[in-house]
């Protein structure tokens, strides 16, 4: 009962914030609402017994990536930008895409309505203790992807430094 309430609260928060992210004129406010959306998602993770992922989401996404975003917004912040037109005229494209997506989802739900709502979830204990399990999989079964991801990060870091460096 409490679990479900928490989920619906966070889901509503996430969707509301997401809508505000794409509709606010001011990029800083968009960023603030994106942080809210990310934290709401983190709450949903916690509700799903994914504690480690919850904290990864908070530290990395909300605390790390979004700080980077806010930084860059402030670096390139132009007062002029506020007076420019913030939306282009492709709203009909967006409408079509959304409509198609909605249709697909509706179709998918219609087809698998029965299973979608009746599949029993595995017991919550199967994910405990969360941190240890994640670590085991990460460093055991997914060792190679893990290393590849670290190389990806290294490349991204070098790339970001090179690109953001002042031209001499």
């Amino acid at each position: 009962m409490l679990d479900q309430g928490v989920f619906y609260f966070f889901a509503a928060l996430a969707i509301l914030s997401a809508i505000l992210v794409v509709t606010r004129r001011n990029a800083v406010q968009s960023a603030i609402f994106l942080v809210t959306a990310l934290l709401a998602t983190a709450g949903i993770f916690l509700n799903l017994n994914a504690e480690f992922l919850f904290i990864v989401q908070v530290i990395l996404y909300a605390g790390g990536i979004m700080v980077l975003f806010v930084f860059v917004i402030m670096l390139v912040n132009l007062d002029v930008a506020l007076h420019q037109v913030q939306f282009n005229r492709q709203w009909f494209v967006a409408l079509i895409v959304s409509a198609v997506l909605a249709a697909q989802v509706a179709a998918a739900i219609a087809v698998s309505r029965r299973t979608l709502y009746t599949v029993p979830a595995a017991p919550a204990e199967s994910l405990e203790p969360n941190t240890e399990r994640v670590a085991f999989y990460l460093f055991h079964n997914y060792m190679l992807p893990f290393e590849i991801a670290s190389i990806l990060l290294l490349v991204a870091m070098v790339g970001a430094v090179v690109m953001a460096k002042k031209r001499v």
Binding site: I32, I55, V58, I59, A62, G63, M66, V67, V70
Partner: peptide, 8 residues
């Protein structure tokens, strides 16, 4: 993690 949110 939570205390690092204070940056905002």
């Amino acid at each position: 993690g939570v205390s690092s949110l204070g940056i905002f």
